[in-house]
């Protein structure tokens, strides 16, 4: 768990984007773990916070592209939940841990790979600097 990054992704567009990323040969470091949700709209704030508390350096909620959610607005609800948790962590002065919302379409393997690595690097650097 320590230093891991948990990707909580939906089983629709985001899952296919992760699969496409792998098919295109873009691999993620072993510290990335994945957790599948029916839709990111069902993301559980308790699970999210407890993963951070138990040592994960970051949690990335990965949903479908905006306006492409199979459940209409699940990804937008997830975005609002993530924003609330981010604000709470920021105001509490939590260091070295991050929460981010990412949207991806099934044909965005490379872009998704780049985004995930950038977030991991930014979160890791932030933690080390402080």
């Amino acid at each position: 768990m320590a230093d891991s990054i948990l990707i909580m992704h939906c089983k629709e567009g985001a899952k296919r984007a992760l699969a496409r990323m792998t098919e295109e040969g873009y691999k993620l470091p072993a510290r990335f773990k994945t957790f599948e949700l029916p839709c990111t709209g069902s993301v559980n704030e308790v699970l999210l916070m407890e993963n951070l508390q138990n040592g994960a350096s970051g949690v990335i909620v990965l949903g479908c592209r905006k306006e492409n959610c199979k459940h209409m607005d699940g990804n937008l609800r997830a975005e609002r939940k993530v924003a609330r948790i981010k604000k709470m962590l920021s105001e509490a002065g939590v260091e070295g841990r991050f929460v981010e919302m990412v949207f991806a379409a099934p044909d965005e393997g490379k872009r998704l790979h780049d985004t995930l690595l950038r977030l991991a690097h930014a979160g890791h650097s932030e933690g080390k600097e402080k």
Binding site: V46, M49, E50, L52, Q53, M88, L89, A92, V94, E95
Partner: peptide, 11 residues
Amino acid sequence: KVLSAALRMAK
């Protein structure tokens, strides 16, 4: 649970 986790991680 959410608040407790935030307090455990707080500065």
